[in-house]
């Protein structure tokens, strides 16, 4: 299914993606599917601290962030990414943006549960641009 990318979509092979997700099953699925598309997964990180450490290390092209990480908001991670100009989007179970820091409410989001095709399109559009 990767053979006919949507117009403007970038090639995913070799893209390095940071995955921040505390649920093992979801993180594991994300990792699996991204690798299937040829991406290299950085992480996954299940806590804010871990995520921040990985952002500090760098070496990735984009990030997928869960909002709630064991009760902590991933806002600081997003802010750091913005400061460094690294593209990212949220993947969240929250229907309401009210739980996001105000500055991040209008950022791009995908809602759980997400379809693989939706996820791929978001990764191509948001994270694979050069």
């Amino acid at each position: 299914m990767e053979s006919h990318d949507i117009e403007g979509a970038a090639e995913l092979t070799g893209r390095r993606i940071l995955v921040v997700e505390d649920d093992y099953l979801v993180a594991s699925w994300l990792t699996g599917i991204l690798e299937q598309w040829g991406c290299r997964v950085v992480g996954p990180a299940s806590t804010v601290a871990e995520a921040l450490r990985l952002v500090e290390e760098g070496g990735f092209d984009g990030a997928i962030l869960d909002v709630n990480l064991r009760g902590e908001q991933s806002g600081p991670v997003a802010e750091t990414l913005e400061a460094r100009g690294v593209p990212y989007f949220f993947l969240t179970g929250y229907g309401s943006p009210a739980l996001l820091p105000e500055a991040l409410r209008d950022r791009h989001k995908l809602f759980k549960p997400v379809k693989a095709s939706e996820l791929r399109m978001a990764v191509q559009r948001r994270l694979a641009k050069r």
């Binding site: 649920d23 099953l25 979801v26 594991s28 699925w29 179970g93 809602f111 549960p113 997400v114």
Partner: peptide, 10 residues
């Protein structure tokens, strides 16, 4: 939603 996501992943 998380559970659904987890179930789908599972």
């Amino acid at each position: 939603k998380n559970n659904l996501a987890a179930a789908l992943s599972l």
